[in-house]
């Protein structure tokens, strides 16, 4: 794994259809919460799987938080995505324990199999690949998380069969 550039400053998906009234409602509901910018962005992302570019202008308009500030926060934290993500996010743990137990290999086979790099989404919008620093399941290294489910003690074969299982389930 080489050094990954984890932040994409420029939102790429202006053509993505966003339910603007819904977005507005989420933003207005968060008015008045102290320190509410991060929870607000988290809520928006929960709803849309990413922070749509329109959100920053609306936050400025409704909450009087300048675009520079909200975009600054959104790009600072690894949780926030500026592009739509797939139905499942595959988080590959690159913590110390996983690293010494050959997490690079797990990354290589997944990336090769799905033909995506970290931060990218498969064409069928099913999987997004992400590298995370530690899932806290070190005794099961190497580990990955798909959605909210954690899988451990993986090798290059078992990890592909897990992904295939999801693909099969989804194609039905």
């Amino acid at each position: 794994m080489h050094i990954e550039k984890k932040i994409k400053i420029k939102p790429q998906s202006t053509d993505y259809q966003v339910d603007i009234p819904d977005l507005e409602k989420i933003i207005i509901d968060c008015n008045g919460i102290s320190g509410g910018l991060i929870p607000l962005l988290q809520r928006i992302q929960d709803r849309f799987t990413f922070i749509p570019p329109q959100a920053f202008k609306l936050i400025d308009k409704e909450l009087n938080i300048p675009e520079s500030e909200s975009l600054g926060v959104a790009t600072f934290y690894t949780q926030f995505k500026l592009n739509p993500t797939g139905k499942y996010t595959i988080k590959i743990c690159k913590g110390t324990a996983c690293h010494v137990q050959n997490a690079n290999k797990i990354f290589d086979v997944i990336s090769e199999y799905l033909q995506i790099k970290p931060g990218e989404t498969t064409e069928d919008q099913l999987f997004t690949l992400e590298l995370v620093s530690c899932l806290g399941c070190c005794s099961l290294a190497p580990a990955i998380m798909i959605g909210e489910e954690t899988y451990g003690k993986l090798d290059d074969r078992s990890v592909i069969s897990i992904i295939k299982e999801i693909q099969d389930r989804e194609s039905k």
């Binding site: 690159k94 913590g95 110390t96 324990a97 690293h99 620093s133 530690c134 806290g136 399941c137 070190c138």
Partner: peptide, 8 residues
Amino acid sequence: DEGDPGAF
């Protein structure tokens, strides 16, 4: 905010 990789 236990961020150290390898700590749980």
